[in-house]
Simulated assay, not measured.
Amino acid sequence: MTYTQLVQPTINIGATAGWCLNYVDNAINATQRTSTAQIAHDQAKEKNWVHPNQDYPRNVWFVMFWSIDNGDYQGLGHVALAFLDGNNNLQIHDSEVHRNARKPYQSLSELANWFGSVGTQLTFLGWSEGVDGTKIIEEVKQAQSQTKKKGEVMILFKDADGKIYWLVGNKYTYVGSPDDLLRIKQLMEKAGFDTWEHTNQSQIKYLKKLAQLV
């Protein structure tokens, strides 16, 4: 999936130890601030923004969430901003990084080991499209293909009496006016079909045996 950046975070701002959500909220100028990263995660999950996997979007900043499973901060959660470039280089920024305690993490395990060094156990909950009411990325929807599907039939044919018919699947209908014919040809072109008016009478006779006039 491809994502586009809706809000460009101000990554290089200061932070305070233990105030991870405040750092992220300030970086994205969050509009609906909550009190803990765990609450922020739960609300983002309700909005279907959270993806509980490591299939990260590329070349955009996104949010990461963890639960804190023990110690004084148990139940409060942890949050960070992250970026994955086209060469699979990951950088994770949190309040620890921006209180100048360390450089950006380059993996989930590096972050887990940093917190684990003081006995804090984290569980990665997934990445998110936003936090605290602010969506910072959005999936780029692929335009639906208008090309013809395998097995579909759509042709124009001119009968012996000069009348033009439009065959779609196993049914055909009389094209009553030049304007109708033009609109039909435009539709067929968009769908990837040939707009040639077939005139081979033996082929037309065979088609009419198989198809139904409507």
Rank of each mutant, 00 (worst) to 15 (best):
M1S: 14
Q5P: 00
L6W: 08
V7Y: 02
T10S: 11
T10P: 02
T10R: 13
N12T: 12
N12I: 07
I13V: 13
G14Q: 13
T16Q: 13
T16M: 11
A17E: 13
G18H: 03
G18E: 07
N22L: 13
Y23R: 05
V24F: 03
D25Q: 10
N26A: 15
A27Y: 00
A27L: 00
N29T: 13
A30P: 01
T31A: 12
S35V: 13
T36P: 00
T36S: 13
A37M: 07
Q38P: 01
I39M: 14
I39V: 14
A40H: 04
A40R: 01
A40Q: 01
D42P: 06
A44N: 01
A44S: 15
E46R: 14
K47L: 14
W49M: 03
H51L: 05
N53W: 05
Q54G: 00
D55N: 15
R58G: 04
V63G: 02
F65S: 01
W66A: 01
W66T: 03
W66Q: 01
N70V: 04
G71K: 07
Q74C: 11
L76A: 09
G77S: 05
L84W: 02
D85K: 03
N87R: 12
N89A: 08
N89D: 11
N89I: 08
L90M: 06
L90H: 04
Q91P: 02
Q91N: 10
D94I: 04
E96V: 10
E96Q: 10
H98I: 00
H98A: 02
R99C: 14
R102N: 12
K103M: 12
P104M: 07
P104S: 09
Q106A: 08
S107R: 03
L108W: 09
E110W: 00
E110N: 03
N113E: 11
G116N: 09
G116M: 06
V118F: 14
G119T: 09
T120V: 14
Q121L: 11
F124A: 05
S128V: 04
S128N: 07
G130A: 05
V131S: 15
K135M: 11
I136E: 05
K141N: 13
Q142E: 15
Q142V: 15
Q142Y: 12
S145P: 00
K149L: 15
K149E: 12
K150H: 10
G151A: 06
E152I: 04
V153L: 14
M154H: 10
M154N: 11
F157D: 00
D159F: 04
D159P: 02
K163G: 06
K163F: 06
Y165G: 00
Y165M: 08
W166A: 06
G169W: 07
G169D: 09
K171A: 14
Y172N: 00
Y172E: 02
G176S: 14
P178L: 06
D180M: 09
D180W: 03
R183D: 09
R183G: 00
R183H: 09
E189S: 10
T195E: 06
W196T: 15
W196F: 15
H198A: 10
H198I: 10
Q203C: 05
I204E: 01
K205V: 08
Y206F: 13
Y206R: 14
L207Q: 08
L207E: 05
K208H: 01
K209F: 10
Q212Y: 14
L213D: 10
V214T: 13
